[in-house]
Structure formats: C-alpha cells, structure tokens
Design a protein around this nucleic acid. Structure first.
Length: 583
RNA sequence: CGGGGAGUAGCACAGCCUGGUAGUGCACAAGCUUUGGGUGCUUGAUGUCGGGGGUUCGAAUCCCCCCUCCCCGACCA
C-alpha cells in the first residue's frame, strides 16, 4: 500500500473543471467531459483520460468484462503495433486505404497500428487450433485502436485513437457460429442494460465483408450520426440504410382516365407542381435519373418519399450509384431538370413499391414546362418494382400489424456479426473435424466502442448544468459537500464520508474552502448521481441533505438525521444500481 | 479529398481593414472581504501574436509559402 485508504478529497484530487468550454467543442458530451475535468484533447481525435474520465471508462470496461466472461469468452491482449504482413494477407492493407495508420520502422519495414484484429486473431487460431476438439472458442480484448479517420469529430464520439472491446468467436460450423452469435447478443443486451443506456438493437447493412447475420446496438441520442427507423410497438428496428416499411396493398380504381398533358410553366419541383395543380405530393411519381455503370437508369419514388441510395445500389447490384448530371438528364429526357417522367422514357426504370401502387399519378412529360396527369403504371409505362425508398415517420411497421415506424438518431455503441469463413478461408485457419476432414473455422466478431460509450452516456444523460451519470458508470456514487467555514460542519462531513466508505460506497468529498455556489456548480457539472450536503443551518437541527442529481428543485432535498445518513445513502446507491438494469 | 472558418496569456476573445512594438473578461498569485448556487475590492505575474520567408526605418497588422485545428459534405471494419 502506497497510500492510506482515505476518501477521495477534491482538494487533493486532479479534477480541473472549467467555466468556459473550448471553442471547438460542439456537442454536449465534448463540452461537459472537458468542462468537468474528465478528458482533455491534445490533437484531432486524440484525448487524454483524466482521473475522473478514467474511472468512468474503467467502470464500463468492468461491466463488459463481467458479461463477456459470463458468456464464456476469455480475455487476451493482442498488440496494437502490427507488421503489415497480416493485413496484406487478406488484402486489407490496401482495402483500408488511408484509414490505416501506417508507419515504418528503422529498417524501412511496413507496420501499422491496429484498427481491428480479425487477421491477428485468425493467425493465432490457425497456429494453435488443429482439431474440432479445440472448438468452439471466444476470445476478446479491450484495447486501444487506431484509425486515421478522414474527419474525427464530436469529441470522443469519433476519434483516431479509441478504446474498443473486440471479441472473435470460432466454431466448427455455421450452426455453432450462430449459437456463439446468440450468446454474444445476450451478453450485449445485459451490458447495455447495465450501462443504463437507452438503445435499440437494429438491423444494418452487413457491409462488404460478407456476413448476413448482424445487429447494431444503437444508443439513441439527438446528436447521433446514424438514422434509425424503429417500430413504436414491436422490436423491429433498422438503420435507415436498410429499414423497410410494410409492403403497400394495391387498390386499383374501377375506371382509369387516359393520361393527359398539362402546362406547368416553370414548375419543376414537386412542391411547385403540387401547388400549381392543387394535388398532394403522394400523387406524384418523382423520377430521378442515375448513372449506373455508363447506363442512365430512371428511379421513381412517390413525391413525398426519398430514394435510399444504399437500397438502390443493392437492387442494382452495384457498389454505389451516382446522380446523373444536368447534361445527361437533358440528353436522356429531352427536357431540363424537373420534367423527367417514365412515359416514353427509353431505358431501365425502377419504381418503388409505394410509387408502384399510385393510380392516376402525376409525372414529368419529358418536355420543358409540361407534366402528365392520370398516368398508370402498366398501361402507360413498364417498370421493375423494388423497395428503394427511405422509411419516414409514421410508416406502417413491416413486422407487426399496428406498429408505426418512428425515426431516431443513434450512436453505434456495439456491432455484432457472423463473419463466416471469410478470414479463416483466406488465411487458412483450418481444423480437422471428427471425420478427419479439413475445414475452415466459422467466425463471428463482436465490437463495443468503450471510450465512445463514455461520451454516448453523456449525450443521453445531461441537462443545462452538466452531466447526470447513471449510477452504474458514475465516477463516484456519492458527492459530499460541506458548506461554509464552520469546523463542526466540516467534521460532520468527514465522519459521514468515513461511514459511507466503510459501507463500500464510492465517495467524492468536496472539502475545498470554496463558497457553496462554487461547489454546487461543480457538483452539477461532474454529475455524480447523489449529492449529500452538510450545512450549518440544517446541521443545527441534526440533519444533512440528500439530493439526487436529476432533482431539479433545490428546495426538495431530503433531510436525513446525521446518524442515519450513511446507511440511508448506501441503501439508495444500491437501489439505483439495481434499477439501472432497466433504466 | 471538395466547400467554409479559425490560430494573439491556461480558457474565451478584441486589436489586423488604415503598420509605430499588445489588450479585455475568466482562470492564476498575494491581501482584505464574503460563506446555501461560479462574492466584492485592491495589487500582481503571465505572450517565440501557429511556423518560415519577404516588403518596410519599423510587421500581430501588408505579401508569399507551410503547419495545425474546427464546421458542412464525401468516407466510416
């Protein structure tokens, strides 16, 4: 023991709080973590964790470790400094491009700092695992990762150096891999519940590296980078890139008028034509031209919908799609931008499912300043029907009867998926099955952005005064303040602090000779969930005051008899730890 | 990588247009004062004005080059 076990006193602690946030901080977590003395930035996307910030990080790590171990995974630690050979072997030395943080050693050898460790763990497994008897295995690490992000942003939300938990499962077959995946899914649910975060498990674009089974754990916040569509009744939730609405039912009218051309001078946008013709946007067939591998393709969605380019690229079987430019539009339709339509269009036409059931539609006439009304698909044009639009607020849920889609923004806190044999086959990580047959192991990988979650928690839990940590990850559980210069008050605070410590409670005692206002402001900023104030007025009547951080009204502090304060507070801490599971 | 913006004290900023050797607030130090929501007053310390080059008697200020950082977009296993 180098230090006596004494409560953490603010006067001795390193908690550099500041009144004014740095000018470059734009979101709540960056501002409050900096102002509260949790972190400091030393470069673009590079942060120091100060003692308070590290305590939060460690608590999150600890919860992750408990649940990973509980799910049968084993922790190991791989290097962050990696020779180029491994990523060259799978081609990712090139695929990663500029995102890989590369360096050379003194002999000119190529190295990089690890952005993720599929190759390294696969190499370990191919060297050590020979038999189906050695499987399954699930190995994880909590480690600092490096990516040369094109644009680090949002404080800790997108960094070039960050702490990540990455786990990799190895199974003899697909069924085993799915079982490993399910075990991880369960562990992740327990982890995110315990962290006290509001999140949704969402379907996502499984990316380029194969893998059909995957889920993102999206923490819901205003400031999230990702858009999510989620059902307000059932479990359905998906990244907007892949979210679907329920397939519409076609209700053809009994009679259909022939289409007619109408003059719509200078009305090229849906809003303009809609106002001019006094027709709602749902009647419009918005026709957009894309260039897809040298070919011009017309893509149609309903006037009130937007094309989802990720879905469109999937339907067309290409990596990405590009909007046609004004010149190409003119050449393909004979009209300027705003008057394209499917009737008479020479070329491939893809129409969204919802646009496909519009009857008596309004489209551009492929002629400047003219539109067609009462257009019918099938009669007036032919098109391939597909799901190519983004869902909107209020869309019917694709999975349940009555649910409506709601839109959220989220921050990706975790991602789990079955990798299959992509890496094991490429790197020849094989084993012999019970029949002596040589097979590649079937892999899964499971990530959690640990340092990102520190910021994510703040994004979700803050008010105008500072942070409101969930009890499970708060840097300390109780914040004790003594006000004024009264020695009796100070001594009472010290006694209560000692009693709390003895009960196993993590206490931060603000023992500074500061004015009460300063201490209260700092307490709100730092955001420890329970605040215990010892002041001369109430102490004279034998009371100390307990106020939860989320109680806005300062008058509503609870008066506790001094002698019972520690026991009551300890009880409250335990209660809050228990409820954080379903917070 | 495209577009926009910014680098002056620990932090937030003014000064630059119109060149004359740097200032305000907070923070910091000392003293007094105050003690339930960032107390008031007095005094004080603190700057390679992002870096390099140029113009000039003289550059934070004008010109050129470079670097860094922020925002929007592209990108994001």
């Amino acid at each position: 023991m180098c230090y006596p076990a004494h409560p953490m006193r603010w006067s001795r602690a390193f908690i550099p709080t500041i009144k004014e946030a740095p000018a470059d901080a734009t979101n709540a977590s960056h501002i409050y973590l900096t102002r509260g003395g949790f972190v400091r930035r030393i470069g673009a996307g590079i942060y120091e964790f100060l003692p308070l910030g590290l305590r939060v990080l460690r608590k999150i790590e600890s919860i992750i470790r408990q649940e990973m171990d509980g799910a049968g995974a084993q922790e190991l630690l791989m290097p962050a400094l990696l020779p180029a050979d491994y990523f060259r072997e799978t081609g990712r030395w090139d695929v990663f491009g500029d995102n890989l943080l590369r360096l050379k050693d003194r002999k000119g050898g190529d190295y990089h700092l690890g952005p993720t460790h599929e190759e390294i763990i696969t190499d370990l497994v191919r060297r050590e695992v020979r038999s189906y008897r050695d499987l399954p295995k699930n190995l994880y690490q909590i480690q600092t990762k490096y990516r040369d992000e094109p644009r680090p942003r949002g404080g800790l939300l997108r960094c070039r150096e960050f702490v990540m938990k990455d786990a990799y499962s190895f199974d003899v077959d697909e069924a085993g891999a799915l079982a490993s995946y399910e075990a991880m899914r369960g562990a992740y649910i327990r982890i995110f519940d315990r962290l006290g975060l509001t999140y949704r498990m969402v379907q996502a674009d499984s990316g380029s590296m194969g893998g059909s089974t995957s889920a993102e754990f999206q923490v819901l916040t205003q400031s999230g980078e990702d858009a999510i569509g989620a059902c307000h009744l059932c479990e359905y939730a998906a990244n907007l890139e892949v979210a679907s609405a329920r397939e519409p039912v076609d209700q053809p009218p009994s009679s259909m008028a022939p289409y007619q051309k109408v003059h719509t001078p200078n009305a090229g946008t849906i809003a303009e034509v809609s106002a001019f013709l006094k027709k709602c946007p749902e009647k419009f067939l918005k026709s957009i031209l894309y260039q897809v591998g040298g070919e011009i393709v017309m893509v149609i969605v309903r006037g009130d919908h937007e094309i989802n380019e990720v879905k469109l690229a999937h339907v067309l079987g290409v990596g990405e799609v590009l909007l046609a430019d004004d010149e190409q539009i003119k050449r393909a339709t004979g009209a300027r931008v705003g008057f394209a339509g499917p009737v008479g269009f020479q070329g491939k036409i893809i129409i969204d499912r919802d646009a496909a059931v519009v009857h008596g539609g309004i489209t551009g006439a492929n002629e400047d300043d003219y539109h067609f009304v009462d257009v019918e698909r099938g009669r007036d044009f032919q098109a391939t029907v597909a799901d190519i639009r983004s869902v909107v607020q209020g869309d019917p849920c694709p999975h349940c009867e009555k649910g409506k889609i709601q839109l959220f923004r989220g921050i990706e806190g975790g991602h789990i998926f079955v990798l299959g044999t992509h890496y094991s086959a490429t790197m020849k990580a094989h084993f012999l099955d019970e029949h002596g047959k040589d097979k590649p192991v079937v892999m899964g990988c499971y990530g959690i952005g640990v340092s990102r979650l520190v910021a994510t928690a703040v994004e979700q839990h803050n008010d105008e005064d500072g942070i409101l940590w969930p009890m499970a990850i708060a840097p300390y559980q109780v914040h004790v303040i003594n006000t004024g210069p009264d020695e009796n008050v100070r001594q009472t605070a010290e006694t209560v602090v000692g009693e709390l410590e003895a009960l196993g409670i993590e206490v931060l005692w603000d023992d500074r000779a500061e004015r009460p206002g300063v201490k209260f402001k700092d307490a709100d900023l730092v955001g420890i969930p329970l605040r215990l104030t010892v002041g001369s007025k109430t102490l004279a009547q034998g009371f100390v005051e307990l106020k939860p951080r989320d109680e806005k009204d300062n008058k509503r502090a609870e008066l506790l008899p001094v002698g019972q304060a520690a026991a009551t507070v300890a009880e409250r801490v335990r209660a809050l730890l228990a409820t954080s599971h379903d917070a």
